[in-house]
Design a protein around this nucleic acid. Structure first.
Length: 115
DNA sequence: GCGGTGACGGTCG
DNA sequence: CCGACCGCCACCG
């Protein structure tokens, strides 16, 4: 298949799949965890390729401002419903409290890393 | 191979 | 808090 076959896309999808239910992650965060550096835009691109017809929890990926980037008419509403359905509080303007719901993957507890 | 584009992000006013 | 600007990076025509 064309683009979605690249490793980058697979890595992105792998990270998205790790986001726990009821939590959210930012595009930049996903890019970082996928080892793509600052290719946040690419993450959006990769998710766009899914067109929502995927088993992937794509709704858990939002922008750094804590908002839904996807235009309402292009699935943004759907994303909002999906988040609410799993217990995430979404503002009327489609904003989520990152302080409250952002996923914080543990940086593999290093032995001896006690501060 | 080049240039425009986008489900982004940080900074500035 | 919000909008405008500019910088980033891979995809597509």
């Amino acid at each position: 298949m064309g683009s979605p076959g690249s490793d980058s896309y697979r890595r992105i999808y792998a990270v998205v799949r790790r986001i726990p239910r009821g939590r959210v992650a930012t595009y930049g965060q996903v890019a970082e965890l996928a080892g793509l550096g600052r290719a946040a835009r690419q993450v959006g691109y990769a998710l766009h390729a899914l067109a929502g017809s995927s088993a992937l929890p794509w709704q858990r990926v939002i922008n750094a401002a804590g908002g839904i980037s996807l235009p309402a008419g292009a699935g943004g509403l759907d994303q909002r419903f999906r988040l609410i359905a799993e217990g995430v509080l979404v503002d009327a303007r489609g904003r989520v409290s990152l302080a409250r719901y952002q996923w914080r993957p543990r940086t593999r507890a290093r032995p001896e890393s006690r501060r």
